[in-house]
Amino acid sequence: MIQIKQVNKSFGSVQVLKNIDLEVPESHVFALIGPSGAGKSTLIRSINALESIQTGEIIVDGISVHEKKTNINQLRSDIGFVFQSFNLYPHLTAVENVSIAPVQVKKVPKDQAEEKAKKLLTSLGLGEKFGSYPSQLSGGQQQRVAIARALAMDPKVMLFDEPTSALDPEMIKEVLDAMRSLASTGMTMVVVTHEMGFAREICNQIVFMADGAIVEVAPPEQFFTHPKTERAKDFLSKVLNH
């Protein structure tokens, strides 16, 4: 579903992505983990062209993302993106946040889009919050609205860029639960996360990045019990033993 081939990117003299190769098959859930500054966010943001790349190619559902001829708006409507800081639209209600892209981009009739938005919000436990503005919602509720907003476009792929990092601890679970049930529907997902428990439980593959490169790719059991590289061992010893 997602193919990343020999991708490189630099900010000035700093190379933030080094020869990245990765293939995410359909209905698989991949976790991107690693120390901060490893390039995880840059990589996931380049999958829907929020970041440009200098060399290499990223293909989503058969379409080359960074090709000039690609209709990027159409491609992006097939890729759901969930941000660390939610980025909900503060001037719109929950239902409007979820329905605006289907109405404006896919030209779905407004009442139909809002009907669907309400269904999505209800399925994410936000049945009481249709008319609420983001400022009236907790962080966990806002992030679930953001997930509903991404799902409203019927994406083929969902990308999550540290979806729980800005949340208070007691709200992390409700967001992870939402992602867990999404994964169980067979959605293809790539998740940048620091939630090792979640990565271990839900993901098919762990992608460990450090210093702009992919260091290790392994199924969770293998990665967490027998990491192959020193870099991964070192990282795990720091995040697991505290």
Binding site: L50, I79, F81, L88, A101, Q104, A150
Partner: peptide
Amino acid sequence: PRGQMEAARSSGMSYVQAMRFIVLPQ
């Protein structure tokens, strides 16, 4: 905030749509 434009663009809106419906009203 920049994230507003990013969120709108990542949902498939064009620059003009994102400006008109998301950024300018705010």
